[in-house]
Simulated assay, not measured.
Amino acid sequence: MSELTREHLREVLRLFIATQPGEHPVPFNRLSTGSLNLLVFALLMYIAELKGDHSVIFAMEEPEIALPPHAQRRLVDFAVRHMGQTIVTSHSPYVIERFEPDHIVVLDRDTAGALTSSTVVLPDDFKAKQYRARQRQFAEAVLARAVVVVEGATEADVMPAVADVLEQDPSVDYVHPDLAGVTFFDAEGDSSVPKYAPVFKVLGKPVYGIHDDPVRAFTDDVAAKTADFTRYKVIPYGGVEDLLTQEIAPAVLRRFLVSVAQRPDYPTKCGSLRDGMDEQAVRKLAWDVLKGRKGDGYGALLIATCTSRAELPDSFAEFLLQVDRDLRPPTDAPGAGASTDAAGVGDEPDGY
């Protein structure tokens, strides 16, 4: 028998836990934020198991806080599999990608504070495998304020690099895409760029498209989708290598060729920069190097060699500046733009 009260027990009892790979138990309240979150989640799972699978509605705000990507995925998968219904709000693409499009609701709040929502609706001619192949890209786009659809991996590398240079140039008034909430979406082909315009437009997001001259003319159905772009640009070049080597000055191309010549992945079969090479030869060598290492980040390395707006390829720079101008709030707006969140709802296999 003891005269200790429940309050006394709360004051003196401590739960000690040893976390892997460590061997020393510590008070649970001294664990990291992520460990505490998982501990709470484990207790909720235990309660759910006592009640029986699919008998509990699980609701959690920001389950990804302080958790690595693999733990986020595991947490969501377990909850969806064992709970009667799972409702989470999240800013993590690793969480959002675990839900099918028809289980995702995009929440938005405008500058006046009004909350709205929209669902992810894929067009009838949009194949499910197209979504699954780019599921994480979609998840990031769902969280974005605006989406810029580009045609390939090189453009997806180059455009953010152009934005970096614009931001660093003190003579240019420019808000970086990361600050403006703009994401770049790789469509993996010029003919695929228009297909994503209606997908993102239905979410109420400004959507921009840019690609070079297509090898084959678009069909009428594909061409009609370009009307859903907020702004759409076809660059008069056959490829991104043509654009970069024609719109960037030879002096910058020379700096680029010197800087990459010592890289272990430099395409030696293309040759190297030599004294006395004329402008045309420098452009040709730069084109060969970019083409020889297409998809390996060399386009972004070339852009990183630029030191100001004046040295950037004008087609990309002007397009990004126009996107920035479009997204600037009106001078009389009470706030600086909307915030976006995503809610994922996971049901039993037969739906809810």
Rank of each mutant, 00 (worst) to 15 (best):
V172G: 02
V252H: 08
L143Q: 03
S55K: 14
F16N: 08
L67P: 11
Y232E: 10
A141G: 14
E155A: 09
G22M: 06
G335V: 07
V76P: 04
A187H: 00
V147K: 02
E188R: 13
V150H: 04
L243H: 10
A338S: 10
G189S: 01
D110E: 09
S55W: 04
D324Q: 06
F185K: 08
V175M: 01
A42L: 03
K129F: 14
T116E: 13
D332E: 15
Y232H: 10
I47Y: 01
V289T: 02
E318A: 15
Q72T: 10
S191G: 14
V147D: 03
H176A: 04
A139Y: 06
S32V: 11
R255G: 07
R74V: 01
R328K: 09
D190E: 12
D77M: 13
A18H: 01
H54V: 06
P330I: 12
V165A: 00
G271H: 04
D288E: 13
V105A: 13
Y94M: 13
F185Y: 11
Y266R: 01
A180W: 00
L312G: 06
L179R: 06
P160G: 10
I47M: 02
M277V: 10
F200S: 03
K284G: 06
V80C: 15
T268R: 05
V175H: 00
T245N: 05
R73P: 07
P25Q: 01
F229G: 05
P93Y: 12
D220S: 11
L273D: 00
N37D: 10
L257I: 05
W287V: 14
D186I: 05
L166D: 00
R10E: 15
A48E: 10
D265R: 04
I210Q: 13
L244N: 14
V289P: 02
H91N: 15
N29W: 07
Q262L: 01
P25N: 02
S272I: 09
F319Y: 12
L166E: 04
I47W: 01
D324E: 04
Q85D: 07
Y174A: 03
M159Q: 08
V95D: 13
R136S: 07
Q137A: 11
T226K: 15
K129Y: 14
T226N: 12
G209D: 00
R10M: 14
D186F: 04
P198G: 12
V158I: 15
L301R: 07
P236L: 03
I210S: 08
L290H: 06
A42E: 04
L122G: 05
P101A: 09
A217F: 02
V95A: 12
T154S: 15
R74N: 07
T331S: 14
P214Q: 02
V121Y: 00
P334V: 08
L257N: 02
E23G: 03
